[in-house]
Design a protein around this nucleic acid. Sequence first.
RNA 1: GGACCCGUGGUGUAGCGGCCCAACAUGCCAGCCUGUCACGCUGGAGAUCGCCGGUUCGAAUCCGGUCGGGUCCGCCA
Length: 634
Amino acid sequence: MDGSQNRTLEFPVSAQPAPLATPYRTHTCGQLRVDDDGADARLAGWVHRRRDYGKLVFIDLRDRYGITQVVVDAADAPEAHETATRVRSEFVIAVEGVVARRQPGTENAKLETGAVELQARSVRILNEAKTPPFYINDPDATIDESLRLRYRYLDIRREAMLRRLVMRSRLVHAIREVHHANGFVEVETPNLIKSTPEGARDFIVPSRLQPGTVYALPQSPQQLKQLLMVGGMDRYFQIARCFRDEDMRGDRQPEFTQLDLEMSFVDEATVMGFIEKMVIEVSRATVPERPIRSIPFPVFEYDDAMERYGSDKPDIRFGMELFDLAPVLAGPDGHPASGFRVFDETLAAGGRVKGICAPGMGGASRREIDELTEFAKRFGARGLVHLSVQAGGELHGPIAKFLSPETQAAARGAAGAGEGDLILVVADTAGTTNDVLGRLRVELGGRLGLANPDELSYCWIHHFPMYQWDAEHHRWDATHNPFSGVVPEDEPLLTTTSGDLGVRDEGDPAGRAKAMQYDIALNGWELGGGSVRIWDPQLLARSFNLQGYTVEQMRERFGAILEAFEYGAPPHGGIALGIDRWAALFSNQATIREVMAFPKTQSGSDLMLEAPSTPDDEQYQELGLRFVGVPEKR
RNA sequence: GGACCCGUGGUGUAGCGGCCCAACAUGCCAGCCUGUCACGCUGGAGAUCGCCGGUUCGAAUCCGGUCGGGUCCGCCA
């Protein structure tokens, strides 16, 4: 997908129309063709490479659109030649001359402009350049990422980075087109707002006009878009910047971009239907070369996804589903009687014994097995049982001797395993078992190369549980979004065992309620999530109460939206998709940093601007601020 | 908050207790070259091995700390 894998064309970044001619140039460096033979032209750009033959100098001139070879001949243009010998890599120059078809046999098929060259009449140095700290003209060079970030403006000159940003621009453009074509209105919402609890820590901005108070940066425009629905906007979208003060990962930055949208008078099917159509159109417009694996997108019940893939964002480009060993291990009376105590005891205690089958890994080395076991333990498993399938169907492994031939055969059947395969089994609580096997599945899928890297495999996961029990605070916590609606048939469950909403218990019926919550996953990443909201103020209050908010806290934190809902809120629902993740997946990058112009490091630094920094005295004064308890640094 | 990995001329790597005041490639500088396109040839400059401290007769190499970057857990949707 990326430049490093395809070097037939250098800088085929953009085939867009040329910009208007300017005093510096008549054409771009990606534009000239045989048809221009004999024409006068001016080009301007950066010196990609210079080849000096003494009396003859070649300069590869580069801009965003491509590379054109400039020839400077001392015999034809002595002054230009003299300048050309002084030119160095990354100098900014302007060249005037005549376009000429190259001599037969000297054409360069690697350049789109490779059939012609610009024979210079004059060469002007617009700006000199220091020797760059890394290679700009070598697409295969590996460069330390912190160096790239420190000199991001140079990194952006590199083909791979440039094409990713151009692709991202196409992505956002396609999003806007599809939404406008479907009657959506793009509305901007403020970035200086009030804290809206969404689980993550807020970034805080102190107010100068009201010392002692702060704004919060939005974690998402969630409440604002719902208020737009109350405002009758009907169909809203925004390319919204969001801020969350949490620790970073390859797919998480403190500020990131979401496609945020909301629709009125809809149910789950309407919203998912539109989003699916939109996602398909946007994918085809942005990366037409990448096939979408299945349309319509597969839809999984949350419970089902966890059961089959051990994940709420399954990568379904390959199978290797988890399987249940409980039926296999049951004795004639239905009680666990495999003979292997760990399995039997786990099942008797209400846990799960499940496995996955790694095709062709039956010959895995001791070292590989240890690695996988270590992997499983890191995610909470107490151990990992491995069984390799021998030629006669017999299972080999440390615990194989506990299993009768009948049990072995049944296990092989459940696993769908054949000769040479490796069966991996985890016995633990349902949560741990699924989680560990789900992670193993992704890990092994990667090792075995089971996923087609070209495919885009979207799927839906919906009907998440409404709440998770928060033992520490003794309350129900919204699994996703505190505004998510409950599926109509579960509405009566939004109550407590005691019937008194003030008294909450882990066994409350509310724990069984399913949300009208849908996530969309792409190739094993969570691309986005949304829900049909609770629009009935009474029901919303009930839900908030289950989540442990008192009436006062609700007023304090959700006052605007609760009040708004008393003035007639339409049924509404929406979704938010991570643009950075989408772009990273479209360009097969492992981190969203690769599709952001100026990302931050894991510790939240901008290595180029050297942010964050200490405020100056005046800022402290104006804001009435003082840092206390900050360790001396720097 | 925690675990792990990385840090050597401009860049990417090698060296992993004395053979190293550090090697290779590329870049850079100078000279030569009229058809190259990762041009070629000749010559040259350039790092005390992130930083601080320790162990040792001796440290780029071992240990501790620290700073920076990354991956992951927690956190986060």
